[in-house]
């Protein structure tokens, strides 16, 4: 669910369109956009406080074979939440789930890891060593 939520909507759409068999499903909960209040902690590790909200879209589906899938996805993209829920349902199925992990989830996770690596390497290139210089009055 985490990989599906963090993927780009276009990546999910791509993955879905490449499925050999697109399953039929019905909505248990149509895509619905709402707010989650993000909590943080005073000082980073102290008492919780309400920091600010974020938009979230959720969706639940049931496949023809009865498998149920859920999605909670940051943002307001209904299609992203819908396909993430359908893929989540497919992943519950032992037979199809394994293949799906290899074909869909691993590539999405790898793409996310690549983006993180790129950012992390750019950040590392800005690491500095400051030297404290002897001040004039000390001489």
């Amino acid at each position: 669910m985490s990989v599906l939520a963090k993927a780009e909507a276009s990546e999910i759409e791509d993955a879905w369109s490449r499925l050999r068999q697109v399953p039929a499903y019905i909505f248990l909960r149509r895509p619905e956009t709402g707010l989650v209040m993000v909590r943080a902690r005073a000082g980073g590790d102290g008492r919780p406080f309400n920091f600010g909200e974020m938009t979230v879209t959720r969706c639940s589906v049931r496949l023809d074979d009865g498998m149920i899938g859920h999605a909670y996805v940051a943002g307001r993209n209904a299609r992203h939440a819908e396909l993430a829920a359908a893929l989540d349902a497919l992943l519950q199925d032992d037979g199809r789930g394994r293949a799906l992990r290899v074909e869909v989830i691993h590539p999405l996770a790898a793409a996310q890891e690549r983006r993180r690596m790129t950012e992390g390497r750019k950040a590392a290139a800005t690491k500095v060593d400051f030297f404290t210089v002897k001040r004039g009055e000390d001489q």
Partner: peptide
């Protein structure tokens, strides 16, 4: 927009800096 609820407190110590 409806409010779904409250998140767990974010962990800024685990931030990807």
């Amino acid at each position: 927009l409806p409010r779904f609820g409250y998140s767990l407190p974010i962990d800024t110590g685990a931030m990807r800096v």
